[in-house]
Design a protein around this nucleic acid. Structure first.
Lengths: 207, 207
DNA sequence: AACTGTTTTAAACATTTGTTTAAAACAGTT
DNA sequence: AACTGTTTTAAACAAATGTTTAAAACAGTT
């Protein structure tokens, strides 16, 4: 009951790491608990010993991942910096985050494929995003005439689309563009400049 | 051997339609042949009678779908119309196509999740896209000083990201934006204007 | 060394899932 | 009506898959 905190943690996190890898690569249905056990170098029964079932193991990983995925974004939306700076910073940081966790987008998105899954609606994501500082900034700057009016949702989807999509379409993109690992990174580095320029060009354009 | 062309077609296509639906909604692993059979109101054995296996059934559907997904795009990239007109047309048509086939993007992308799948590399997509008329147009217009220089791949990914991503993230987007079916359509209609404007604003901006 | 609670293991279990079989139903031909 | 090839069905099969069991190994305590 004491060393549980030491040895257990070891195998427990080993299982979690393995599960994370396999779930991310193959999705819930595609991930077999035997693969996870093998990846973790652990007896299958231990998966059910530490987590009650495959589903719970998955949920535990999903919750964590989803938190990262949106946490990053939400924090940045609320930073107290000028709009233009914010755009550059969001793209830069989010790109870096995804370069370090390239499988997260596909993982999160497939979970919600046809929308049936509920286990993210309890979090108050809706409100958090809707009341983000960014929203106020977009309205204010538009009123001042500094930018043209744009719905926050369009803004967010445009940014996300431009930054996240390459990761979602990565294998196809890599094939078409003849990009290896390094080539893809370079491509995303280029987008760190292109995407903010594109967004700002639109916002600042006289209409 | 003759009416095969009549009655067979009927059940065969019924199976195909059902399989398409279930595969699109749940992915390869998530789709169970019994679900497909039920959806098609057909005995399970018939799936293997008409298609040799689950995998072949899947491939047959995938091939068709992938053709649509890229066919549309490639055709448009090669149309002999001015660049700016082309941008507007691509966004408009591709949006319409996706509104009519909203599950296709996720379906295609998940197949290539970690890139292991080979069965689209035989098609010469790489060359087709690389040698598209659009590429020449982007170079020429940049040389004339009408637009700023941009790598074709960035152009394509930017367009696709802005148009396709909303469909990939649809359930989350719908939740955050409080959008029902109609609301989502409206959102995409708005993007038909926003996206080309954004792209063109960037291209035309003096650097 | 015996005891206690925790962790790990090998094996078994019950379902699910893709596939096959063998017979029946059907439809057109002679 | 008998015959032929095609389509459909119910049932069985084998393999895969998530879960459970019961015993063993381990580690710390008395």
């Amino acid at each position: 009951m004491k060393k549980m905190a030491e040895l257990d943690q070891d195998t427990e996190t080993r299982i979690k790491k393995a599960a994370e890898k396999v779930f991310m690569e193959r999705g819930y249905e595609g991930a077999k608990i035997r693969d996870i056990a093998e990846e973790a170098k652990v007896n299958i029964a231990l998966l059910n010993y530490y987590f009650r079932s495959k589903e719970q193991l998955f949920k535990s990983i999903y919750t964590e991942t989803f938190g990262k995925f949106f946490g990053q974004m939400v924090t940045m939306l609320n930073e107290e910096i000028p709009l233009e700076v914010k755009v550059w910073k969001i793209v830069d940081q989010y790109t870096n985050f995804l370069l370090a966790n390239p499988l997260i987008p596909m993982f999160v998105l497939t979970v919600h494929r046809t929308g049936g899954v509920d286990f993210f609606k309890d979090k108050n994501i809706k409100e958090v995003i809707q009341s983000a500082l960014l929203t106020k900034q977009l309205i204010e700057e538009a009123e001042k005439g500094n930018i043209r009016p744009i719905k926050p949702l369009h803004f967010i989807i445009s940014v996300m689309g431009n930054v996240v999509f390459p990761f979602v379409a990565r294998p196809i993109l890599a094939y078409i563009g003849d990009l290896d690992e390094a080539g893809f990174r370079e491509f995303m580095e280029e987008r760190k400049k292109l995407v903010p320029e594109m967004i700002m060009a639109y916002l600042k354009q006289r209409s």
